[in-house]
Simulated assay, not measured.
Amino acid sequence: MEMRNRDLKEDIREYWTRRSATFDLAFGHRIPPGPELDAWAAAVRQAIGPAPQRVLELACGTGEVTNVLLSLGHEVTALDFSEAMLGVARAKHAGNARARFLLADAERTMELDQAYDAVICRHLVWTLTEPEQALADWFRVLKPGGTLLVFDGDWTKPTPIGRIASLAVRAIERFIGHDPYYDGAMSEKHADIMTRLPFSDGLTAERVEPLVAAAGFADIRFPSHRPIAAAQRRNADLRNRLRTRFYRRFVLTASRPRDIDGPDLNALPQAEGRSS
């Protein structure tokens, strides 16, 4: 298992490293100013409150969610295990004293116990090779009363409406051509990685909830993702508006209780590398 995960994580790292130069061109990744940035900011504010906090951002990529957090006044430690992704993020936020970027493993952050008010990630959980280990580590670094905020989705199969939307996009692309940035132009590599992940058959809110609870989190909730999707559609063309209908996406919030400890990390298999 350890060797398999090491090889898998290296494949994941290589995939995201290759995508780093053009990732901001992919619809659904960049968070432009205006309605979409406002919607993401509202979701974060609702989850962790309006006061500036110390936030650990996992799998920060090119620093788009980092920008949301900084716009709200938070102090952000943003980690990624792709040096290329971090290079883009560092350049984007150069000179901002409230942003710190680290090359690190999101499944084993190596950050101090109870150091953060909030732990936040977008589109990371589906890539985890050891989800139990990761969730236990995120619990560990949160202060009692701290918040876990996850944005993710089931990227393995479209919804019934998504299947219709996908057919419509294919029809549109017969006339305007394929968008090379939407799937990173490496869909075969992406598909191979997905088949080897624990969530290879899909990540759903119903599936992740018991794992979060087993890690020690409480007050698990699922705020609506609809305001973000609606904001994405505001200034998008028809093809991209249809893309927001493809998959079932979700938002998860949970808290570390103030008076109990989490699982014993030493009892869990130790993962190496990083998922981004």
Rank of each mutant, 00 (worst) to 15 (best):
N67Q: 12
I31F: 09
F139A: 02
M85S: 03
I164Q: 15
H225Y: 13
G28N: 02
V150P: 02
R239I: 04
R100H: 14
R170G: 13
T147K: 10
L102Y: 11
A47V: 07
Y247W: 13
A218E: 10
I260L: 13
R6Q: 12
F222E: 09
E206N: 08
S200L: 07
E14M: 15
A43G: 06
P257F: 03
P210L: 03
R163M: 10
V212G: 00
N96D: 12
R234S: 08
V65C: 04
P263I: 07
V76F: 05
A218P: 02
R245G: 02
I31Q: 00
A215L: 04
A271S: 12
P32C: 03
L149G: 03
S20W: 00
E10C: 11
W16C: 04
D261K: 14
I260E: 14
D183C: 14
N266M: 09
M194W: 06
A104T: 00
F222A: 07
F250R: 03
E209R: 12
R90I: 13
R221V: 08
P227E: 01
S187M: 12
F175M: 08
A78R: 04
E272C: 11
P180H: 07
P158L: 13
I176T: 12
L242T: 01
C121P: 05
T62G: 08
D219Q: 11
C60L: 12
A267H: 08
E83I: 11
A41K: 12
N5V: 14
F151H: 06
P269T: 01
S200Y: 10
N235S: 13
V251M: 13
A84V: 05
L79V: 08
F175Q: 10
Q133G: 10
D219P: 05
R98K: 13
N240W: 05
P227M: 09
S255T: 14
I228Y: 05
L167W: 12
F222V: 11
P198V: 06
Y181Q: 07
F23Y: 15
A39C: 07
R108T: 06
